[in-house]
Every structure is written in structure tokens, then in C-alpha cells.
């Protein structure tokens, strides 16, 4: 059994308008993980999700869900997927209860009122089961979309911008729910352009831009990069090169020879700032100024996008 529940290989998509939405995308999603796909608007996040879920035809490449091809074995692949779309698209005249019953049936499952009740209760919608969808607040409608996506007990849940335009309280509630689903073994893929959201709940973070996946990395590793700090030492006199006595600290010397930069892990208790400063003193280098700089995930994200 593969450890991956979703495997995307060399996936490309060009719309009839000529827009190249995806370019040779490779992505493997592990069972039970929460993967956040970060990217600016128009990056290709929704197209990627739409192809996996069967809403958009792929151009070239392949997509498998639990080992089933999304085109050839679409029944097996789709019944494992739940999708929460970005927009509040739900039949407004249905009752909440009929809406989730409809969703369960669509995905080939027989009635299980006890399960649907538990889903609605977990999303605080049970009391509203007889209300028409049009009578619900925006937050409730969004929760209903999640309930509909969960109605057939999917193994993989796609959340397309789940917290776009929702208030802070609801956003926290969503994150809590996502955590609960992960505990039940559901694999969750969410697209977002809120970096804070990715930091809060994801196990891995993928960055996508202009149809290309720029990186997919463990959040902890990215957080280590987030914690990376730089100590900038401005010198009174320019240096032709980094002195031999400071070689162990792997300092970078600026082109004009007036700035030494020491990069270290700000999150770690075991850096060598004190030793390095002691070595600077012993080398009799005169400092004009000292300051530190921290790279945030956002800066990493922005710089990656600029490089792309």
C-alpha cells in the first residue's frame, strides 16, 4: 500500500482561452496529513483541486486518488473525495437536512441518519436541520458546505479557500474542525493565501505560482527557515576577505567589504553568537553598527514568487 493518497504526475492544463493554468505539476499527498497549498490569486490552486475532483478535465499528465485514476476509475476515486468549494454554492431552497441527504446519495451511500446527525451536530447545524439554506448566515452556509462534503465519509477532504472572507472566530472554528478531522484519519488539502492559516494547521506546505509547484516542504522545516536570523555587523574599515579566525562561523562578506553577515537559527538555544562576537573582538575588528534581521515565511513566500 502506497503511503500517498493523492498522486499527481506531470499534470498540465491549458484552458481554451489559452491560459496555461498548470505546468507539469508533480505532487504527492500523504495519507492523513494536512497539506496547505499557498499561492496568489490565479496561481492554479483551484484548477489543481478541480482536476483532482473531476470538475475540470486535465490537459496532460495523470492524477490518482488511493491508486485510482481520476479519469478511468472516476467512480472509485471520486467516492473517496469530499470537496468544499470556495464560493457559497448550495441550493438555497432546500432544507439543511435534505441538502446533506442529497450529498450522501450522490456519492453512492445509503441513508445513515445517525451519521448525518453526528456531522450536523459537530458543525453546530443540527438545530437548523429543518431550516431552508437561504435562512442561514454566511458562516452557517460555509459549515453546511463542509457537512455536505463530509456526508459520504470521504478519505480526502479538499477545502478551497475555506476561510476566505470569514471572521476570526469562524476561522478558528474551522481550524479546530480540521484538526478533529485529521485525528479521524481524514487527509486534508486546503488552499489558502493566508500564511497564518498554513502555519497554524498544516503538516506540510506547498507553494504554487503561475501553474507551478515551487516547493512542498514539512512545516517544521519551513518554520526553521522562518526562525532563521541574520546578524549584520557593519565594519569601520573594509575587509578584503573574511579573516581565517572567523572561518568556522561561515560569515558572508559584502562586496564592499564593510558588512559581515552571520546567519543562525533564531529558534535554537544553541547558536554561536557569543563565540562569534568573541572571535570578532580577538580579530580586532572595529564595528560601526550591529543589527539583526529575521526572514518570515511570508518573505520566503514572496521571494520564491519573485524568483519564479
Amino acid at each position: 500500500m502506497s503511503e500517498y493518497i493523492v498522486e499527481v504526475a506531470a499534470l498540465s492544463k491549458q484552458y481554451p482561452s489559452g491560459h496555461q493554468a498548470l505546468k507539469h505539476v508533480d505532487l504527492r499527498i500523504r495519507k492523513g496529513e494536512i497539506l496547505a497549498l499557498l499561492g496568489p490569486n490565479g496561481a492554479g490552486k483551484t484548477t489543481l483541486i478541480s482536476i483532482i475532483c473531476g470538475l475540470v478535465n486535465p490537459g496532460s499528465g495523470s492524477v490518482q486518488v488511493a491508486g485510482f485514476d481520476v479519469i478511468k476509475d472516476y467512480r472509485q476515486s471520486r467516492q473517496r473525495i469530499g470537496l468544499v468549494p470556495q464560493e457559497l454554492v448550495v441550493s438555497m431552497f432546500e432544507t439543511v437536512w435534505n441538502s446533506v441527504v442529497f450529498s450522501r446519495g450522490m456519492f453512492g451511500k445509503g441513508r445513515d441518519d445517525a451519521y448525518l446527525q453526528s456531522v450536523l451536530q459537530s458543525l453546530s447545524l443540527w438545530e437548523k436541520r429543518d431550516s431552508k439554506v437561504m435562512e442561514l448566515s454566511g458562516g452557517m452556509k460555509r459549515r453546511l458546505l463542509i457537512a455536505k462534503a463530509l456526508a459520504h465519509e470521504p478519505e480526502v477532504l479538499f477545502l478551497d479557500e475555506p476561510t476566505a472572507g470569514v471572521d476570526v472566530e469562524l476561522r478558528r472554528e474551522m481550524w479546530r474542525l480540521v484538526g478533529q478531522l485529521r485525528q479521524k484519519g481524514v487527509t486534508i488539502i486546503l488552499t489558502t493565501h493566508y500564511i497564518e492559516e498554513a502555519e497554524e494547521i498544516a503538516d506540510r506546505i506547498g507553494i504554487i505560482s503561475r501553474g507551478e509547484v515551487l516547493l512542498v516542504e514539512e512545516k517544521q522545516q519551513l518554520m526553521a527557515r522562518l526562525g532563521q536570523k541574520q546578524l549584520m555587523l557593519q565594519l569601520q574599515q573594509p575587509l578584503p576577505e573574511v579573516p581565517e579566525s572567523l572561518a568556522a562561523f561561515q560569515l558572508d562578506l559584502s562586496e564592499d567589504g564593510l558588512m559581515l553577515t552571520y546567519t543562525y537559527d533564531g529558534g535554537s538555544d544553541h547558536n554561536h553568537v557569543t563565540e562569534m562576537l568573541g572571535a570578532i573582538e580577538r580579530a580586532r575588528l572595529e564595528l560601526k553598527d550591529v543589527h539583526t534581521k529575521q526572514r518570515s515565511l511570508e518573505q520566503i513566500f514572496v521571494s520564491l514568487l519573485e524568483e519564479a
Binding site: 470538475l55 467512480r75 471520486r78 473525495i81 454554492v89 441550493s91 442529497f102 450522490m106 456519492f107 453512492g108
Partner: peptide, 17 residues
């Protein structure tokens, strides 16, 4: 046409049908 217009057609198109 109604689900197409409202966007709720996504559920039909993404279902194993």
C-alpha cells in the same frame, strides 16, 4: 440549469456518477 446557474452543479460533476 438552476444548479448550473447557482454553481451547486459542482456536486453533481464531482460525484461518482
Amino acid at each position: 440549469y438552476m444548479p448550473k446557474w447557482s454553481g451547486s452543479i459542482y456536486e453533481v460533476l464531482s460525484a461518482p456518477v
